[in-house]
Design a binder for these strands. Structure first.
Length: 395
RNA sequence: GGGCAAGUACCAAAGUAGUCAAACGGGCCUGACUGUAAAUCAGGUGGCUUCGGCCUUCGGGGGUGCAAGUCCCUCCUUGCCCA
């Protein structure tokens, strides 16, 4: 049983492992390993992409290993360049505090916080002297640092690269020295930083950590996952929202998500792939599995039923936002803006003309395309598009 | 410090005096269809409007001109090259 778990740990969702043989032996030896995971407290939300790493850590945790979570409060002053093609703005200590509160709460959805050792890297990096830094730096060359993909791209495109950014991998690497890590896990784009950890540990006469990088999952639309693209699932998203977002996932990404973001056994995934042909049905399973992980089985089931209700049966959602209105009657456009279904009258007019507005009074559904129309305010539900509903009540 | 580019709507990118609320594309929105908030197809995508139009927008400010995103001046920002 344990053997299977270890095999899965090493293969599932993994992109690269250095040194695989060594890590495998260490895992089988029964020794309690110190697993390092570093986060920069930059963004307030953990999305599914980052969650895959946390899930992997949880696997290690379940096998009895120790997780050391390093909060990069010091390195945040620099900003890692791994997932950016432009320079990142340094954070203030106030930002960091604010972000971290949120972080630990979210991390707690996946990791067992009681068994997680949380450290702030300012503890040791803050003590590092200029002299120390120079000594460490002598083992690296500018070429090495620039060689990495992100910098190379920026260099070639003539974009700026801050001198301090070049130091980032060294600081992250020094974290490994400070906590004497045995294994470090990160996204595929972290490979360079993780390897620098090995170099530094050697420099400090420690055994170099093994390094595990995980596959990066793409965003819902198949593009790179990025909060600013809006193609991201945050683990704190509403269960119904997570489920819905999964339903909008590009079909080609379904099994990637299954592998990286769920704990459904690989054999079962293969079986699903073979037996279920309708992607919609597979997505439903996937959606449930993912919601379940961050919420509960029950909430996952509810999210699924809600989706079926609204999108398959075209019924009303169970919860509809309610707004009370004083006026006895209102122009349809004014009404739509007032209840927040449209940002402006122009937008309201467009949606109306395109047939996106439905007014539901009791059983009947009327579609009104006249924007001069005055609506008598009474208890009713207004639907805009496929999934925006507002219930109107008289004040 | 010197030289050269560039700054346009959510993003990206055309436009170099009038037909520009501003091409194309991405995103987003709506509809059709369906196997879904997928794919595909179609349409839409600054605000207000008495539906005639009116108002605001192309880094900021100023100017020329009947008319400026488009020309001139100036300032700011960014990048590249040289020192």
């Amino acid at each position: 049983m344990k053997k299977i778990k270890i095999e899965e740990l090493l293969s599932r969702g993994a992109e690269d492992i250095i040194d695989k043989k060594h890590l495998k032996e260490a895992l089988f030896s029964g020794k309690k390993l110190n697993i390092k995971f570093g986060v920069d407290p930059t963004g307030p939300n953990i999305h599914l992409g980052r969650a895959t790493i946390l899930m992997k850590l949880r696997d290690f945790q379940d096998l009895g290993h120790k997780i050391t979570l390093i909060i990069g409060d010091f390195t945040a002053l620099i900003g890692d360049a791994s997932d950016k093609t432009a320079m990142r703005k340094p954070l203030t200590s106030k930002d960091i505090k604010e972000n971290m509160k949120n972080y630990l709460f979210q991390i707690g959805k996946i990791l067992d916080l009681k068994k997680t050792n949380v450290k702030y890297n300012s503890e040791w990096l803050g003590k590092l002297s200029t002299k120390d830094l120079i000594q460490i730096s002598t083992s690296f060359t500018a070429q090495q640092m620039i060689q990495r993909r992100n910098f190379k791209e920026r260099w070639e495109q003539g974009k700026e690269i801050g001198l301090h950014e070049l130091l980032y991998p060294i600081f992250q690497g020094y974290d490994s020295v400070a906590i004497k890590s045995d294994v470090e896990i990160g996204g595929f784009d972290q490979l360079f930083n993780l390897k620098t950890g090995r170099d530094l540990q050697r420099l400090f006469k420690q055994k170099p950590q093994d390094v595990m990088t995980l596959k990066m999952i793409y965003g819902l639309d198949g593009r790179k996952m990025s909060t600013s693209w809006g193609n991201v699932i945050n683990i704190t998203d509403d269960p119904k929202d997570i489920f819905g977002k999964i339903m909008s996932l590009k079909d080609e990404l379904i099994f990637e998500y299954f592998e990286c973001c769920t704990r459904v056994p690989m054999t079962k995934i293969k079986e699903i792939k073979k037996t279920i042909k309708n992607p919609k049905e597979i997505k439903k399973i996937l959606g449930k599995e993912i919601v379940k992980q961050f919420y509960s089985e029950k909430q996952a089931q509810e999210a699924k039923e809600e989706f079926e209700q609204v999108h398959e049966k075209k019924d009303l959602p169970t919860e509809i936002k309610e707004i009370k209105i004083k006026e006895a009657e209102l122009n349809i456009l004014d009404l739509l803006v007032l209840i927040g279904l449209s940002k402006s009258k122009g937008e309201a007019k467009r949606v109306l003309e395109q047939g996106g507005i439905k007014i539901i009074r009791g059983e009947s559904i009327n579609i009104e395309k006249d924007w001069k129309k005055t609506i008598i305010i009474e208890e009713m539900i207004i639907q805009s598009g496929k999934r925006n509903f507002v219930k109107i009540k008289k004040f």
